[in-house]
Design a protein around this nucleic acid. Structure first.
Length: 314
DNA sequence: AAATACAACAACCGCGTGTTC
DNA sequence: CGAACACGCGGTTGTTGTATT
């Protein structure tokens, strides 16, 4: 690929720390013309910098909505929990912390939090470590976290789930029926399992459609977006009371918070994840879901992906 | 006071991915 | 359809400030 280098090292461009004058040039230009078009921006703004450097400086330092000062205990707690769920997806984590940048959170993790948690982990009980090592071994296909850290996040190869089933013996939807909840059993013989080799021998049942709850605006609720094939989606709102329906059941899904920017465009990133029930409970009961500034939150939603424990329909 | 070690932060770099032509 | 491009992400490195010896 004949790709032009972003910024040639011998092009006489400034490197290293930014001066106050450069900051002013950049901020003034963006105030008038807006950001974006980073390749052309330096020349137009009268800067001897590469576009990439300008972008970074703007996003990490000059942006007006940057929050300065120490990370609060609440923010730290949120970072820890989000990192547990997301791994080193710094931009995703930063998206949940208004005013904080991915670079800042990454630095904070690498210099403070990571060490702190590693220290705590080393103090953890032997049992915890066994559980963690099991998780790690299941995660070997694509580890999501720093190799230094214990990871609770699976990152299996992702497939969209064409049908969605939970175990029939789950507490919440425990009966075979074809009632208003549209619950149907599925014998495993008609299902195809992918991914890991954790075989469930219980019949599976289709999850009742809760699509009518799509408009629930409570950001605490987790809206599940099951891709049913051909772009057809079935939506579920997973409320705290529903979470235990997935007891003893781990699954992955495409993390998609369903946020829309002011133009109505979906800006959500997609991240295949695998959540344990505890993590789901944590996510569905959390009250500090942070809505990024400038975006209106419709509701967080997700689409399921293969985890090896979710059966794909025939 | 000087040297060294360490922490914190800013910036750089390579690569992946989506978009445009 | 594929090349070229633009952008964003995450890992890494460089720099500066502070603590310790």
């Amino acid at each position: 690929m004949g790709r032009r280098p972003c910024c040639a090292k011998d092009a006489g461009l400034n490197r290293g720390a930014w001066t106050a004058h450069e900051d002013k040039l950049l901020a003034d230009y963006i105030q008038v013309h807006g950001d974006g078009k980073w390749r052309d921006l330096p020349q137009k703004a009268g800067l001897k910098r590469c576009g990439k450097s300008c972008r970074l400086r703007w996003l990490n330092y000059l942006r007006p909505d940057i929050k300065r000062g120490n990370i609060s205990p609440d923010e730290e707690d949120l970072i820890v929990r989000l990192h547990r769920l997301l791994g080193n997806r710094w931009s995703l984590i930063a998206g949940r912390l208004p005013g904080r940048t991915d670079n800042e959170i990454k630095n904070y993790w690498n210099t403070k939090l990571g060490k702190k948690i590693l220290k705590n982990y080393n103090k953890a009980s032997a049992h915890d470590k066994v559980v963690d090592s099991e998780i790690q071994s299941a995660n070997r296909a694509s580890p999501s976290s720093s190799p230094k850290m214990a990871s609770h996040v699976f990152r299996p190869k992702a497939f969209n789930c064409s049908k969605d089933f939970v175990r029939q013996d789950s507490q919440h939807h425990g009966t075979e029926s074809d009632n208003d909840n549209n619950v149907k059993t599925r014998p495993p013989a008609s299902s195809v399992m992918v991914g890991e080799t954790h075989v469930h021998h219980q019949p599976f049942m289709e999850v009742p459609s809760l699509a009518s709850r799509e408009n629930n605006d409570d950001p605490k609720n987790l809206l599940m977006n099951f891709e049913m094939g051909d772009g057809d989606h079935q939506l579920f709102m997973l409320e705290p009371a529903d979470a235990h329906a997935f007891a003893n059941f781990e699954f992955s899904y495409d993390l998609n918070y369903g946020n829309k920017n002011n133009n109505g465009d979906d800006f959500s990133p997609s991240s295949p994840m695998l959540f344990s029930e505890e993590m789901l409970q944590d996510l569905t009961t959390t009250t500090d879901y942070v809505q990024p500034q400038g975006f209106s939150c419709l509701s967080p939603f997700t689409s399921f992906l293969d985890s090896g424990r979710v059966w794909l329909g025939d």
